[in-house]
Write a protein that binds this DNA or RNA. Sequence first.
DNA 1: TAGGCCATCTGGTCCT
DNA 2: AGGACCAGATGGCCTA
Length: 120
Amino acid sequence: GRLESAARRRLAANARERRRMQGLNSAFDRLRRVVPQWGQDKKLSKYETLQMALSYIMALTRILAEAERFGSERDWLSVPCEHFGRDHYLPLAGAKLPGEGEPYGQRLFGFQPEPFHMAS
DNA sequence: TAGGCCATCTGGTCCT
DNA sequence: AGGACCAGATGGCCTA
C-alpha cells in the first residue's frame, strides 16, 4: 500500500534525476564542442571544460578590446598576428603548442587553475 | 593499487 | 503534493 507508493515515487524521482543529469551532461558536451581543444586527444573533464570556457571567453574579450584600440576593421585586419605575442594570441586549428609536457590547461591562454574561495 | 572522473541513488530543501 | 535542484555516498571504470 503506502510502502509500495513510496517506492514508486522514489523510482520516479530517480528517473527524473537521471534525466536532469543527462540534460546537464549534454550541455557540457555542447560546451566542449565550442571550447578549444588544442591537440588534446581525450575529452576535457567537466571541471576542465568550465575552466577552459572561462579562459576562452576572457581571451576573446581581450582580443575584442585590442580590436577596439585599432578603430576600423581595415586597420584591425592589417595587424600582423605577431603583434599580440604569445601571451595574447595562440594559433587556431589545433596546432601543437610549444612547451609540450606541461599540463594541458596551463598551455592555454596562460590558464592557471585558481583555488576556490569558500563563500562565507 | 591508488587516485581521478563519472553515473546513479538518496534524502533534504525550496518552489509552484 | 509533486517537481527541480542540490550535495553526500557509493560503486564502476580507467590510467599512471
